[in-house]
Design a protein around this nucleic acid. Structure first.
Lengths: 204, 204
DNA sequence: AATAAAAACCCCCTTTTCGGGGTATTGGAT
DNA sequence: ATCCAATACCCCGAAAAGGGGGTTTTTATT
């Protein structure tokens, strides 16, 4: 029997999930929490296999909670269950230890299938989430070339295009192109977000 | 026996704390209040050693109440128990006489340990609160106001001035001023360097 | 009552970044 | 031989950020 814990600040979501999962053979809900603090308490008292984790929580960010859970209960497997379909959140949750990513509009079968797949050691993404990941990778993936990494480092250090160009004996337009391409590859919209991502993801 | 009074506007928190503390040997809860007025009455009639004090109270600010308690009952030792993890609140509470600062998401052991430590004359900060204080001291002279810290967080998250202005219901020029002032205070020349500093120095 | 700090706002002007298009040259793998 | 990825370059125009000045109001401290 797969023991599932739900962490979500919407009672309706909790109820719905509970109904769905309890009706499914081989799995049931052993607990639910509506915020990060309760979730921590629940995890202490209740052994489980899977956590369905929302990102929007009132007291703590779900991505941080994900990291916390993985650190304290490495055997627990986490599935993100959220409305966010942006690549950033997926990438962050995966980085913080999530084994799956379900959008809230996912079909019920996707949810139970996801739980089963992740329980058996796999990874699972709902159709829409998978599409986002796929399109992102197709757009260039997260792997940066040597030159791109070099450029990114200099950007993170606060150099402007002009300065980088002088430093590397390249044209400003070249740096500009690299910069725009980096924004694209990393899926962010400006320098601030890029620097943050670069540091958090240890890209530099 | 350490006599503890709880002041918090959430019944759930009071219940939880009561359960936790009464179950702990050597300490018990002798009273609880859900607002500032009740708290003052309670203090008059009930001798105690420790007050667990929330900052968010319906009638009076917990930071003011803290000052009041210290002035009227100097022997009483106060531990802030709150959801606010901003340095501002910690600094204010400590200044007003608190001997400890526990975040509501603190582990139960941290809470009982904190009560014991403070009762014995020491100071206690939950892990998360301690980290905030530490990073703040380490960065020396740099002091950002609450608003500045808030703005910095939003910048780090990649919002533009326009977006921040809309989010906080302020003018774009205001955000612009804050931004320029942050660059000055942090001694950096552009957003990239600022974001890097903010993350590395744990300013956000 | 005076001072100071924080918060919000304003203008002008320059530089930099960003979005959306491209092109040319390499050097390595199939 | 050809395909491909990496590198370097280019133009336009719009949006955003940065530099350097300000002002007003509120709030706290002395």
């Amino acid at each position: 029997m797969i023991k599932v814990i739900i962490v979500d600040d919407h009672p309706i979501v909790i109820d719905g999930m509970k109904q769905l999962i309890d009706a499914e053979p081989g799995m049931n809900v052993v607990g639910a929490a509506m915020n990060g603090a309760d979730a921590r308490e629940l995890l202490k008292s209740t052994p489980a296999d899977i956590v369905l984790l929302d990102i929007n929580l009132p007291d703590i960010n779900g991505m941080e909670l994900c990291e916390y859970i993985k650190r304290h209960y490495p055997a627990l497997r986490i599935i993100a269950l959220t409305g966010f379909k942006e690549y950033f959140y997926m990438q962050k949750m995966i980085h913080n230890g999530a084994s799956g990513y379900l959008l809230k509009n996912a079909m019920p079968e996707e949810i139970t299938e996801g739980i089963r797949t992740v329980y058996e050691g796999g990874e699972y993404f709902s159709d829409e989430a998978g599409a986002v990941l796929k399109s992102h990778r197709e757009k260039g993936g997260i792997f940066l070339t040597m030159r791109e990494t070099e450029l990114l480092s200099l950007i993170v250090e606060g150099y402007t295009n002009r300065e980088i160009a002088d430093k590397l004996f390249l044209g400003v337009e070249t740096i500009n192109s690299y910069r725009k391409n980096l924004l694209l590859k990393l899926g962010v919209k400006n320098t601030a977000a890029m620097v943050r991502l670069a540091i958090i993801e240890k890209l530099v």
